[in-house]
Write a protein that binds this DNA or RNA. Structure first.
Lengths: 343, 343
DNA sequence: TTGTAAGCGTTATCAA
DNA sequence: TTGATAACGCTTACAA
């Protein structure tokens, strides 16, 4: 910017009319404009290749057209797919998709929300699971209240510890579904590779496993819970730790697919056969899940579709103002070849 | 937005001073403000949890703080890494990172640039390779000129067919480096899996291979060029086509790692051993390249670092206004186990 | 040290 | 059918 910007006034001058008239033409206003001037204005716009300054429009209309999307890690296929789905739906409709990558840091997430507030974002999507942290909850609380007072649309994917429109993805259910599958295949001694400790999503998936085990009179001993961080690398490290207890288990549920994939890779690397020696399941159904050795049995959370549903929801609530409901997604067990029937 | 927004006036009222004074406090203005009023203003800001409306600030300062990043496919690790690098550097500094996912469509890319122009973006990064398309060039030309007149910082990663600051990534050189490696290992019959036809990057990498072959008195026959699209799936499909000509070649260069990975996967799937039966190399050094079977030999383009370099460049040129230079990245051959020495 | 007023590029209101 | 004017929230001369 900084230099000379073409404004509505320049157009008005060229079309020999007032800025008001130009505005009316731009916005297809109901207010009548003669065909003649309309043509002149359009010609001028074309000639100058003018586009109205949306910043100024935003100031006037009290809308920024900014949609904030707060993500934990854009390099994680899970978030990349979701963002792509959102973008696909949104960017075509003159909204700005503003990404924040928080690496699950409280500080960065608070910063992101503050920025979005300062920029008067029309909507904010908390795309990642909530952080389980008192400081986080406290800091967020007041900002969220204010955002709500300003009329910002707030959407939480997965339950968040503040009152916004929280969409349940069925994390607990997803864990139950794969656990059930393991159980049906005769597995009783099941280990768990955890997600990030401070993440509510990890908690939910862990609970799903525990609940399903409990329903069947089984338990998840603490020593069969291994650290993880939702990443491929985390899965690899877990595999190394898991080796010691390999004779105590027949199957392992990884908190997400990325972890499961890393786990399988390192297990292979260590000469342990999946599923012959040990069965592995994940959660998410990432695109790459079908290309591991063996292909990963998992639960599909159709993330891209979730993204387009988010986009649709946002668009409807921002534009048409009607209080449209969110289309939730379906979970589905995806059987591939990483589970052995030992029953 | 839409409802009641807290403004500088509210703060002024509470602090019993003028909006001007509040503004001075907010901006740490040189203009003197008494310690007493400063404290009162700060207290009021805190009490109201006020943050200045950056849209309004932007209108005044003729800055939007928007940085547009146009990407081909955010689900491609290549772009995800780059965006993460940019974001990491930028979002901490009160800029808005505005993502567009174009799927290499001329229409979408033009739309993205028009949106960015309408939003008076301070900078635009053309993160993906240029599209080779006459219509694209024409449509872009005038917009680019205008953007330049407005003072927008324009950065092209890889050469683009319009005059902006184009950063060469050394695509041609990268292809030469891996080709050289193949040659050193005794390979003479080398196939190529192409990238998207309309992409300049594909062209450059193909040329690199051809040039290096030519230097050694070799050629790349047309029937040894297989279609691809820079994706894992594309690599898989290419593998199936390649099967017919398997006896005519000893090695294959995939236009990028994603392709190479898909290729290797499908080759394995078809019972063809890499590198025993055929050697495979890629370009990019994606994070997942070291986890294929066998781990992929490739050329590293440190993409995340490229992203942070982009962020740094943008920040320096936007804030300090000094005409800082772009830090280019280094290419490096990454030898892993997908190439067999047959010399 | 403080404040008034004009203006950034738009659009809504009102008048002509 | 057209246009002057005020206003959106903020900053920047200019005055006091």
């Amino acid at each position: 910017m900084a230099n000379k910007e073409i404004t509505i006034k320049d157009v008005a001058r060229l079309a020999e009319c007032s800025p008001t008239t130009v505005s009316r033409v731009i916005n297809n206003s109901d207010h009548p404009v003669s065909k003649d001037t309309e043509d002149k204005v359009k010609a001028a716009i074309k000639k100058l290749n003018f586009s109205p300054n949306r910043i100024a429009q935003g100031l006037k209309s009290d809308k920024s057209n900014i949609i904030g999307v707060i993500v934990h890690d854009i390099c994680d296929s899970y978030f990349a797919e979701m963002v792509k789905g959102i973008e696909e739906f949104i960017s075509g409709h003159e909204y700005i998709v503003n990404i924040y990558n928080t690496s699950r840091s409280v500080e960065k997430e608070v910063h992101a929300v503050n920025m979005l507030k300062a920029n008067r974002a029309d909507a904010i999507v908390f795309a990642g699971g909530a952080l389980m942290d008192k400081e986080y909850e406290q800091k967020m609380y007041t900002i969220i209240e204010q955002l709500k007072a300003q009329g910002t649309i707030l959407l939480g994917i997965t339950p968040h510890p503040f009152e916004i429109n929280n969409i349940s993805l069925g994390n607990k259910t997803a864990a139950k579904i794969v656990t059930e599958h393991l159980l049906e295949n005769g597995h009783r001694k099941i280990a768990f590779i955890d997600g990030p400790k401070n993440l509510y999503t990890s908690f939910l998936r862990r609970e799903g496993l525990k609940d399903k085990l409990m329903e069947n009179g089984l338990t998840l001993p603490d020593e069969l819970i291994f650290d993880g961080d939702f990443s491929f690398e985390g899965g690899r490290k877990a595999a190394l730790k898991l080796m010691d207890k390999i004779d105590q288990i027949t199957a392992v549920l990884a908190a997400n697919d990325a972890t499961a994939l890393g786990l399988i890779w390192e297990l292979n690397n260590q000469g342990i056969k999946v599923p012959a020696d040990i069965s592995v399941v994940g959660i998410d159904d990432l695109p790459e899940a079908k290309y591991s050795y063996p292909p990963l049995t998992t639960v599909s959370l159709p993330i891209y579709q979730l993204g387009t549903n988010i986009g649709k929801y946002l668009l409807e609530n921002l534009k048409e103002k009607k209080n449209s409901k969110f289309n939730s997604i379906d979970l589905k067990l995806i059987k591939r070849n990483s589970v052995k029937d030992i029953s």
